[in-house]
Write a protein that binds this DNA or RNA. Structure first.
Length: 395
DNA sequence: ATGTAC
């Protein structure tokens, strides 16, 4: 062993960071995710790890955690830098789920600046394309991403809801999406050079990161505008838009959030599943929670398990029309099983844990009417793509 | 979650 190593070993070992888990004893948390939290806590410079009740294992880093350290670790944010959830009020005359589902635009096809130059949705960007990254603009992505028309269900804090301009029965578009290929490219470039190590030039990383965060937020506006126009509604500004994959400099440390939303006096939509309500909450998380709240119900099982168990338990039909009566637009059977409500924890339990620990106050629920995951098999837009023709409309 | 390779 080199003297260098001996010297390191002889130094008093810095104690690992504290880990706080904001979940009650009867909330199921996969042990792999807790092990990941302990590994993160042992990283150089780590100060405090706050695990949210939706905690579950991720690739390398846990999902549903806020991690504060003196060193910036890009892998703790992950590849989908800027992923978040936004809520847009929308006014529609008649809501028949089948008709709405049929009118959803093809959100797997990017808007092309030249061929789609006259699409009114572009107004949502106001000419801004962060990092000049045009690829994937207007697409929702895969995994847990979605665009959903929901109805405000139970109002739990009428004063707060009315300040947001919401009352029971109102319609909203909920958009969960990130920075698509841009964030992936930024993390890959870092990882190829430095692996899971810290960013040697944190300012350079942060400049790219900030562009991806902005790109994600603008893309959520673009997605909402595409859908609003297709449904004959006027697109507007979001009343809620919080990013749950990002790093910020706060109190002199790097606060990494991975599947954890900023919870310092902000309103956050905590996503349920495609067959259960979501909760709009007023977040008021303090330093113990790294100023963060949960971002959703959280996976209860891996995608592989959800696929295997889902095939035995559910039919495609019951996943496409949920117990709430809502429709799920998803031409990909595998994704439908992976994203089955039964693959997620109960959102009420997650919200209950946030409330119990004083991290958030529920404002209102949103109840799904139509959720878009990926284009329907047999849709006009998908046929057009397959045949190599341009997307919209009929031949 | 992603683009890309298998």
């Amino acid at each position: 062993m080199s003297p260098h190593h001996l010297r390191q070993d002889s130094l008093p070992k810095s104690s690992p960071a504290t880990v706080s888990v904001f979940a009650s004893a009867n909330s199921w948390i996969e042990s792999d995710a807790l092990v990941q939290c302990q590994r993160v806590a042992a990283l150089d410079g780590m100060v405090h790890v706050a695990a949210m009740p939706d905690l579950h294992p991720g690739k390398g880093a846990p999902i549903g955690a806020a991690m504060a350290s003196t060193v910036l670790y890009p892998f703790l944010v992950g590849s989908d830098i800027g992923c978040g959830i936004a809520v847009f009020p929308v006014k529609l005359r008649r809501v028949v789920p089948e008709r709405i589902a049929a009118r959803f635009p093809d959100l797997d096809r990017a808007l092309d600046p030249e061929q789609d130059a006259d699409d009114p949705a572009w107004a949502a960007l106001d000419g801004e394309v962060p990092a000049g990254h045009v690829e994937g603009l207007g697409t929702v992505g895969r995994g847990n991403h979605f665009v959903e028309l929901s109805r405000v269900g139970t109002v739990l804090d009428s004063g707060h809801a009315s300040r947001l301009g919401l009352e029971a029965g109102d319609l909203v578009l909920v958009v969960h999406s990130g920075s698509r290929g841009l964030g992936e490219r930024i993390l890959r470039a870092h990882t190829e050079a430095h692996g899971a190590g810290p960013a040697p030039d944190s300012a350079a990383y942060l400049a790219q990161h900030d562009a991806a965060v902005r790109w994600g937020s603008l893309n959520r506006r673009l997605l909402a505008a595409r859908v609003a126009h297709a449904l004959g509604a006027e697109p507007g500004a979001p009343i809620v838009d919080q990013c749950h994959n990002l790093v910020e400099v706060r109190d002199g440390v790097y606060l990494h959030r991975k599947g954890a939303a900023p919870g310092d006096g902000r309103d956050v939509l905590v996503a349920g599943t495609r067959g259960t309500p979501s909760y709009l909450v007023a977040a008021h998380a303090g330093p113990d929670a790294n100023h963060s709240v949960a971002h959703g119900a959280g996976r209860k099982m891996s995608r592989a398990d959800a696929l295997r168990r889902g095939r035995a338990k559910h039919t495609v039909e019951e996943l496409r029309r949920t117990p709430l009566g809502s429709l799920v637009v998803c031409g990909d059977r595998q994704l439908l099983f992976e994203e089955a409500p039964s693959a997620y924890k109960r959102i009420e339990q997650v919200i209950g844990d946030l409330v119990h620990h004083g991290l958030a106050t529920p404002v209102a629920t949103t109840v799904p009417l139509v959720t878009y995951k990926t284009a329907d098999a047999g849709s006009a837009s998908r046929d057009a793509r397959r045949d190599g023709r341009r997307g919209r409309g009929r031949p």
